[in-house]
């Protein structure tokens, strides 16, 4: 009993335990903000949906303006657009799929790359502050697109033998199929799309929560706790800034990884020997 009272006495002096205007750690509710438009209909729009729509509009306008009047000697704006498009074409599509198949799947891969990149980058743009990919819907849609794409690629290239070759890899003695086939089934047809969606989603969720944690802690230390705790506020602010920079890296990296994995899955489906 006495220890408890002692503990309470100590805790009540820590700022984290105070109630009025206390510290609110970020929770999962961050990602389900209140509905803003069309409440009660199936087309309810909240903040994140509006951000997604905004991103789509920005992307369309950007690429329309960037590719409308192409010049042989590109200007500054056109070079940036070309650099981005060239990155997907050369470093991802043609590098892994070869020139012919690379060109065939290029529109899909380019769309995935720039959509994911633009949706991710809203996580660190001031006033938007949440990534369009940080709610499960969009990653799932993109993962389904990738899933359909690689199965389509495989069925088109090896009609009839694709499913057999991916479930029963050749060159294995038959008793091993008892182990290999279930593993291949789960890893190829279930885990691939699930991990594609989860990887993107969880990167964005974790990144957003870290940023919220850093900046709400800064706000709390500076304005609520005061005094000695202000020093901690400086530290958490520095961490928040570092994580913001890190989030830019993560946004680009996840767009790259998502596109790269889609390409690799298509490449594996197209490969002659499974």
């Amino acid at each position: 009993m006495q220890e408890n009272e002692l503990l309470n006495a100590v805790l009540s002096h820590l700022p984290l335990a105070s109630d009025g205007g206390g510290f609110h750690p970020p929770s999962i509710d961050e990602f389900f903000p209140p509905v803003l438009l069309f409440e009660g209909t199936p087309f309810e729009l909240n903040r994140i949906m509006l951000i997604r729509l905004l991103v789509v509009v920005v992307l369309i306008v950007l690429f329309y303006l960037g590719t409308r009047r192409m010049k042989i000697v590109p200007g500054r704006f056109q070079s940036i657009i070309e650099m981005g498009l060239d990155f997907v074409r050369v470093n991802i599509a043609e590098d892994l799929l070869g020139r012919k198949d690379g060109t065939r799947f290029l529109p899909l891969l380019t769309t995935i790359f720039f959509l994911v990149l633009a949706m991710n980058i809203t996580g660190i743009i001031p006033f938007l502050n949440i990534a369009g990919t940080s709610v499960v819907g969009l990653p799932v849609v993109l993962a389904i697109v990738a899933y359909v794409a690689f199965i389509y690629a495989g069925l088109k290239k090896h009609p009839g033998t694709f499913l057999k070759a991916s479930l029963f890899p050749p060159g294995v003695p038959w008793p091993i199929y008892l182990i290999v086939t279930p593993i291949e089934l789960v890893s190829t047809f279930i885990l691939r799309p699930v991990t594609l969606a989860l990887r993107l989603l969880m990167n964005m969720v974790a990144g957003h929560l870290l940023l919220v944690l850093c900046f709400s802690a800064t706000q709390f230390f500076l304005f609520t706790a005061g005094g000695f705790w202000t020093l901690f506020g400086v530290g958490t602010f520095a961490f928040g800034f570092a994580f913001t920079v890190f989030e830019i890296l993560v946004a680009v990296l996840q767009a790259y990884v998502f596109t790269l994995l889609t390409t690799v899955y298509i490449q594996l489906a197209l490969a002659e020997e499974h």
Partner: peptide, 27 residues
């Protein structure tokens, strides 16, 4: 270096997936 970097990101993506499944299990 270029080829190896691509392979590295692939390897990281596959390995990292386990950690993200770990986060998801909580929810």
């Amino acid at each position: 270096q270029g080829r190896l970097q691509t392979l590295m990101f692939l390897g990281i993506a596959f390995t990292e997936a386990l950690a993200f499944i770990g986060i998801a299990t909580y929810f």
